[in-house]
């Protein structure tokens, strides 16, 4: 009896838990700001952030959004173009894998934030240097996920390929790469959010447009609600990009998602 009545409640909670948490969080935030008399430069209230968002012209938002999105997507695309062939090369040749892997780890463990100013000095303040910074921050998870996926191909299928005496590029194209698709998409999901981070880091160093630039500029003029508005906008953009990668996987490779999650 108890179970049958509590079950719908549980179902309802499961479907709306995130929304419920979000609403409660924003409400609490608003209440604390109003009744706790928190100064606006420490924590602006949600209402003031929404007002700040609409105070900025929509075309200006689009301009900043386009500047950031352009760099993030170009860096992301460049990173895919570099990392997938690199992963293939590493899987096919042990010598290459042993040579490149340590270099990759060194690049990955060097903080890109620290390298960014150097890249700007070397390559100028144009889009290219920001794209490169984004690429540097996004390609490591892609290489690792693609290589891991290709190496996890069942040994039997490799034996099948060998016993058919098929050319080796077909082993890569028809067996290893498709097998790596689920892994590659995990890597893409991590990388797409990193791409936004990369673009913003680059804008912090040198830019006159973009959401990262907008946040920095707003903060330096003590327009804290406006900075928060930019930050939240950025988070929403990141989320949409992440979801787009998920949708792309569902649309292009439905088989690569476990059956109960399709």
């Amino acid at each position: 009896m108890l179970k049958s009545t509590s079950f719908p409640v549980r179902q309802w909670l499961l479907s709306y838990a995130a929304a419920l948490f979000f609403i409660t969080f924003v409400l609490l935030w608003e209440l604390i700001c109003r009744f706790g008399k928190v100064p606006v430069y420490i924590l602006p209230s949600p209402v003031s952030i929404v007002n700040a968002f609409f105070d900025v012209e929509f075309s200006r938002w689009l301009e900043h959004l386009w500047a950031t999105l352009r760099v993030a997507l170009m860096g992301f695309a460049l990173s895919i173009c570099i990392s997938i062939p690199l992963a293939i090369a590493m899987v096919r040749s042990e010598v290459l894998s042993r040579t490149i892997y340590p270099a990759l780890v060194v690049i990955q463990s060097t903080p890109v934030v620290a390298v960014a100013p150097l890249i700007i000095v070397l390559m100028g303040t144009g889009d290219m240097s920001r794209v490169l910074i984004t690429c540097l921050i996004t390609f490591f998870p892609l290489v690792v996920s693609a290589a891991t996926g290709m190496l996890e191909t069942p040994e039997e299928l490799i034996e099948l390929s060998k016993s058919l005496r098929a050319p080796r590029y077909r082993e890569t194209w028809q067996i290893r790469i498709p097998y790596a698709i689920p892994h590659i998409f995990s890597g893409l999901k991590v990388s797409i959010t990193l791409a936004i981070i990369g673009a913003v880091v680059a804008e912090f160093v040198a830019a006159e447009k973009g959401l990262g630039y907008f946040i920095q500029f707003s903060t330096s003029f003590f327009k804290i609600p406006q900075a928060f508005a930019g930050l939240i906008f950025l988070a929403v953009v990141s989320l949409v990009l992440f979801k787009s990668v998920q949708w792309a996987q569902q649309w292009l490779y439905p088989w690569s998602i476990p059956k109960n999650k399709r």
Binding site: L160, S163, L164, Q174, I175, I181, S256
Partner: peptide, 29 residues
């Protein structure tokens, strides 16, 4: 290449239909 191997697990390719899985040796070779 004149042997056919059947493994312990079916080791079918999850992205191909049953028919394309059967055709896979030809496509691959």
């Amino acid at each position: 290449d004149d042997v056919g191997i059947v493994f312990q697990k079916p080791t079918l390719l999850p992205w191909l239909t049953v028919r394309d899985n059967v055709l896979f040796p030809l496509k691959h070779k």
